[in-house]
């Protein structure tokens, strides 16, 4: 891979290194004009509530208000609560499985990008359908697919002689089932973003590689993947962030009063339970802050690591 990558001329329409590449100039007040409209809205509608939540995480609440400062008590309770670790574990499992969709999406997007491939638009629509579909309606269909007695999935498994579990109501399998749906619904999104990235790769590079006698597989590994890394990075970061927010899908697939729920809950589900069900809004705020810190940390690490594998950033 690396050998061929070196052979690809960097200057072929791709960004040169940005850092220090363009001499000295200042943009003066222009950045303010560009950024301010967004920042004002973000600050008012989003950052302020986060600041409030941060403060609430150090308080104890009455149901309809009246908070008293309670120091780090909520955080102490949080790290001592086994459900926190259960939900963290489930969230990580879910995230890991949905992340498997990223390499899959790269491969499928590259296949779709094959020059001269017929029906490409049609395939693209097929793969994008899950992303468009309304979650609540589709959850019902998935429950039928996962049904332990009469489900389509278990019927297929029985054809190859495998006994299928009660997917959505067995601890362990339930989070797997939810992850499958998560993977299914996010694949189309990743593919469409990657498709835009692929289109930015100049065809000349493929021509050069082809002239060098590189096989399709080698062209994929040596041209497509390296030049797509900024987009892959973006998709990965977004996938991790959205996977950590798992809630609606989990609820829609599993339903209420599912005996497997206590062992299958996600962090955000745990947050909701604490916030309303137990009316411990201060504690819920602490969970929200923990989620904030966890995804923030993971994302920060991703940004740090990107220098090692993302081209030209």
């Amino acid at each position: 891979m690396s050998g061929f990558q070196r052979a690809v001329p960097r200057a072929a329409g791709r960004p040169a290194t940005r850092r220090g590449g363009s001499g000295v100039h200042t943009d003066g007040w222009w950045p303010v004009l560009f950024v301010a409209p967004l920042l004002i809205g973000v600050a008012a509608f989003y950052l302020w509530p986060i600041v409030q939540t941060f403060w609430f995480s150090f308080t104890t609440f009455g149901v309809f208000g009246g908070q008293t400062f309670s120091g780090v008590a909520n955080y102490v309770a949080l790290v001592q609560d086994p459900e926190f670790y259960t939900s963290l574990g489930n969230t990580l499992i879910y995230t890991a499985i949905v992340l498997l969709g990223v390499p899959l999406a790269v491969w499928l997007a590259a296949l779709l990008n094959t020059p001269g491939l017929r029906f490409a638009s049609f395939y693209r629509v097929l793969f994008f359908l899950p992303y468009i579909a309304m979650p609540t309606a589709v959850a019902l269909v998935w429950r039928l697919i996962f049904n332990g007695d009469y489900g389509v999935l278990n019927w297929f498994l029985s054809l190859v002689g495998l006994p299928g579990p009660y997917w959505v109501s067995t601890p362990g399998f339930a989070i797997l089932a939810v992850s499958i749906v998560g993977l299914w619904s996010s694949l189309g999104f990743s593919m469409i973003v990657l498709a835009a990235g692929l289109k930015a790769i100049p065809p000349e590079l493929y021509e050069a590689a082809e002239l060098d006698g590189a096989s399709p597989a080698r062209r994929f590994r040596s041209v497509t993947v390296p030049l797509l890394t900024p987009t892959i990075f973006f998709v990965t970061v977004v996938t991790v962030i959205s996977s950590f927010q798992l809630f609606d899908l989990l609820y829609a697939i599993m339903g209420p009063r599912n005996p497997a729920m206590p062992s299958s809950m996600s962090l955000v589900f745990y947050f909701f339970q604490a916030g309303f069900v137990d009316n411990q809004q201060g504690f819920a705020a602490a969970i929200a802050m923990a989620i904030f810190a966890l995804i923030g940390l993971v994302t920060l690490v991703q940004f740090r690591l990107q220098r090692r594998w993302v081209a030209d950033v």
Binding site: P49, Q52, F56, F61, F64, G275, F276, Q281, A284, A288
Partner: peptide, 9 residues
């Protein structure tokens, strides 16, 4: 719950 979260102030 969330509504309640931000209720106090």
């Amino acid at each position: 719950a969330t509504a309640g979260l931000l209720l106090a102030g």
